[in-house]
Design a binder for these strands. Structure first.
Lengths: 230, 230
DNA sequence: AAATAAAAGATTGTATTCAATCATTGTATC
DNA sequence: GATACAATGATTGAATACAATCTTTTATTT
């Protein structure tokens, strides 16, 4: 859908990656000038990248006050995870109706990658874990479903950045293995159930931290640093 | 997600509506200059509207050769309808778990509108039929699900414009009535089945015209008009 | 006459520019 | 000392301008 031959694509792609990898945290301002300087392009070019990221829900573009990394509310967080459950259930349903052979081959190859970097390169490891889900969606052959899954997985990263403790983002490798096994057996019910539990686990680690909700509120943070009777 | 206080919003919204209502047919070129003239805005403004429509899949934005209304292939058409089935099944599932009262009230009110314009204003009638599905999604309370349904319904209009005969786009009013009844009864299974049949009907009317696949191929159209031995 | 090549025109890609809006700091008043 | 107001600086909104690319027409050659 997005053509890479344009100048704004690298800007879009880098911002996207940075947000997903939580280098750019929710709420961070994204001024057109400085981004343009970084990539040596004009604001016009930056702007079109921001418009697209806004359309995808990763960036919040407010009139006259610029762009910032989206800050999902707790309600939106639940909404996003629920949608993800729906989409990935559909993925499981479809994969289990298809010829398992080529699917399993691709999945096992990916799993090997995941194993390879598990305790070696954390950033890459997290990225691969996310890409496992995108690969699953792509293997259905449906471009639209793959697109939606891609989008929702990105937004989940945003939710994790906002609410979860550091690196609880880790997708269980064992769980991925079990999902593959269920698909190989053509057992849709089991695949769906495994996936459901898997996602529920991620969600739980992320959203069961009610205290973290004021993470980005400066005064609340500073309040904890005030020395009494100074 | 999109802020209406900007100058590009009206451009975006009008183009979108025109595409959905099939006033702008698939493949039609959308030159920045002339659109800018129409709305009395600069190309810069038009461009950001086009970028967004491209992200939503309604417009095809190709580097150095501009924008045109997206032309779904037959494969994409099936893909879109299959995705729509998935999303609207989810809508039914959720609605049937909720308090039926306020939902039914909203739906019946909408249905009255649909009846009112049935044989009076065709354009409006078709629009209302589409909006029925969007209303259903909105009533789930999930912004994301509503967004996705909105998007997919728009893209279905595009598919109908591309493949269906004129005005077979009509959503059956009776079918809407039955869907409401199933929700009122809290019968998820029936609601899902009704919705499935309803959408399948629309899809069939649209896609079971194999001869129409070369609609936009000028030589194929003209071939039918050549008088033999002229 | 058909095919190729060259030039003109039209359209898009991107940077630059100016006006409008917002955020922040400083000042005055209560 | 706190609040309201005013001025400054920074940032965005949107139009214009120029360069690059594509499309179409015209000219040339075979």
């Amino acid at each position: 859908m997005y053509k890479s031959s344009t100048r704004s694509f690298p800007v879009y792609d880098s911002l996207r990656q940075a947000i997903i990898e939580q280098a750019l945290k929710p709420g961070v301002k994204l001024p057109e000038d400085s981004i343009g300087d970084t990539f040596s392009v004009s604001r016009t070019t930056v702007r079109s990248a921001l418009v697209r990221l806004d359309a995808e829900g990763l960036v919040d573009l407010q009139p006259n006050r610029g762009a910032s990394v989206a800050v999902p509310t707790i309600e939106e967080a639940h909404d996003i995870f629920e949608m993800r459950q729906c989409l990935e259930r559909e993925v499981m349903q479809r994969l289990c109706k298809m010829d398992a052979k080529p699917i399993i081959k691709a999945l096992k190859s990916h799993l090997a990658e995941e194993k390879k970097y598990l305790h070696v390169d954390t950033t890459r490891s997290i990225r691969l874990a996310g890409e496992f889900h995108i690969l699953l969606a792509e293997l259905t052959g449906s471009k639209i479903l793959a697109n939606y899954v891609n989008e929702i997985v990105s937004r989940c990263s945003l939710v994790l950045a906002r609410f979860a403790q550091a690196h609880s983002a880790k997708c269980g490798l064992d769980e991925h293995t079990e999902i593959i096994a269920a698909i190989e057996a053509g057992d849709a019910e089991r695949a769906i159930s495994q996936m459901h539990q898997h996602l529920h686990g991620v969600q739980d680690r992320a959203l069961l931290n009610p205290d973290d909700q004021d993470k980005d509120n400066v005064s609340d943070i500073l309040a904890r640093y005030v020395t009494p009777n100074a």
